[in-house]
Write a protein that binds this DNA or RNA. Structure first.
Length: 363
DNA sequence: AAGACGTGGGC
DNA sequence: TGCCCAAGTCT
């Protein structure tokens, strides 16, 4: 045997090997999943919806994205609508999805498209790459899916598929260039968008991180990783650093009418631009009451709430205790009074909603 | 050019 | 329970 056996496209003696890409596309056509941002074959993709979905899907599961995508496209049907939106409204609509720099860059990008591109997304990877929040992957994905351009689309799924297919044992992220070159070698000229989505779908379904369904894979016979019994162990990755534990004290400040004092976080950095329950900084050292209270935006007769809020971010664990106090009201810099029934519409990230839940539960 | 940057689900 | 993971980007 000199190489992989390819099925023939036509029965007969003139055996034409079917390229790997064609076999993947056949699989995709048969297994095509219906997602709100996906279009029927032959239907023109709306670059706005492609862009929005790709940004939402960065490091985020399909299941988590669907309701946000539907909410955004209903409320802001075009990139011009989004460009005209209030920052606060967009941040509130994004609340819970995570990686909030994406939402800040989403607005920046929409406004650049409006102001510098006549309201139309550019159609080349190079120009897309210049827009805020669009990196190598997203530029390639939009070029391929929205504009049908051949592009080497490499996300985490593709890295997994390719590293298995070619039995790349060097660990990520060092092997990224190698994987990109190999991915390039398989990428066809035709059906660029379908091929990109097919690769990602393959990684998301059959070629999954654990228990890959090799028996159903259109590339089963060609996969070096499977042949070598390595598939499930790939891609290799360098070990991640341990997450430190940080601690903080949050201040649940209630006014006579039940309104709670919330604060706007700094525009950049962790949870940048989002709303918070005021708190001390988060540090590894434990807080004494005397250490913490000077960070409260108001003075009050503090009473500790029962329990603890635990939350894990990408790079640290967080434990928050909560001090509750009653304040007279008034204005405080960067702060607003919000009734509990209005919390829903606030740009409160999940960790902050955990504090709200804890406090309201002891109302 | 490592590290910052969220969250929820699965095992 | 705790760790790994998901359609990455920015600095």
């Amino acid at each position: 045997m000199t190489g992989p056996v390819h099925p023939s496209s036509v029965a007969g003696s003139a055996v034409q090997p079917v390229p790997l890409s064609a076999r993947l596309l056949d699989w995709y056509d048969a297994e095509r999943r219906h997602l709100p941002w996906r279009y029927a074959p032959g239907q023109a993709a709306d670059p706005y919806r492609v862009w929005l979905s790709e940004v939402m899907l960065q490091q985020t599961t399909v299941a988590a994205v669907i309701s946000y995508f539907n909410a955004f496209t209903t409320r802001w049907p075009t990139v011009s609508d989004l460009a005209a939106a209030d920052d606060e409204a967009v941040m509130a609509a994004w609340a819970g999805l995570g990686y909030y720099a994406r939402a800040r860059n989403l607005l920046k990008c929409a406004r650049v498209v409006r102001d510098s591109h006549g309201g139309q997304f550019p159609d080349t990877e190079e120009d897309l790459r210049r827009l805020p929040g669009i990196g190598t992957y997203t530029a390639a994905a939009i070029a391929a899916i929205a504009f049908g351009k051949r592009a080497v689309v490499v996300d985490g799924n593709v890295e997994r598929v390719i590293s298995r297919m070619f039995a790349v044992t060097d660990p990520l992220p060092g092997s990224k260039d190698q994987i990109r070159t190999l991915a390039d070698s398989l990428t066809p000229e035709e059906r660029a968008g379908d091929y990109a989505q097919a690769m990602m779908d393959l990684g998301a379904t059959l070629c999954s991180p654990r228990k890959p369904a090799c028996g159903l894979c259109p590339w089963m016979r060609d996969c070096d990783g499977r042949k070598q019994g390595l598939a499930e162990q790939l891609p290799a990755k360098v070990a991640k650093a341990e997450k430190p534990l940080r601690r903080g004290v949050a201040f649940w400040i209630v006014r006579w009418d039940g309104a709670v004092l919330l604060r706007r976080r700094a525009p950049e950095g962790l949870l940048g631009g989002m709303t918070e329950v005021p708190s001390t900084p988060w540090r590894e050292e434990e807080w004494s009451r005397a250490d913490a209270v000077p960070y409260a935006p108001v003075s009050a007769d503090w009473r500790p709430l029962r329990g603890l809020v635990r939350h894990t971010f990408t790079h640290f664990h967080l434990e928050l205790t909560v001090l509750s106090g009653v304040a007279k009201g008034g204005e405080y810099p960067g702060c607003r009074w919000v009734l509990p029934e209005e919390m829903e519409g606030e740009a409160l990230p999940t960790v902050m909603r955990k504090i709200v839940r804890l406090a309201l539960g002891q109302g």
